[in-house]
Amino acid sequence: MRHAISVLVDNEAGVLSRVVGLFSGRGFNIESLSVAPTMDPTKSKIVITTTGNDAVLEQIKKQLNKLINVIKVVDCTDKDYVEREMVIVKVRAEAETRAEVLRIADIFRAKVIDVSPASYTLSLTGDVRKLEGFIEILSPVGILDFIRTGTVVMEREMQGRRKL
């Protein structure tokens, strides 16, 4: 099962490599990773999405907590949370497909952020399923390249309420 783990760490040199090294050294897998400073500039937030059975996930969380620079580990999968990721996709858009690309972009509420005679570059924010759906739909048209940011997550303010 896919888990999004949010890890609050000291914003110090080498901390990311401690976290990433833990995953590679212990054979845990990383599906996506994002890192950035937080409201408190002395701390950073790392969000890792990973898969594994309960025992593996338990080890991942415990091992992360054991790192001295790790302040807090939250497995968002246990919580109500919102998640977003962004993708930038460059798609082939020549005469006969230009309109089709824009239509798809519109359906997904993607933005056109760059244009050339033969391509559109689109950006889209959403959860993983939406992004993957978008990429799947665009594939037959001809994706030239895409880049994803990795997932970021935040716990919902009101836990246990109906999702918006």
Binding site: G14, S17, R18, G21, L22, G25, I68
Partner: peptide
């Protein structure tokens, strides 16, 4: 520090 990261407590 890089070399001993996985074999030190810290």
């Amino acid at each position: 520090v890089g070399i001993t990261r996985p074999c030190t407590k810290h």
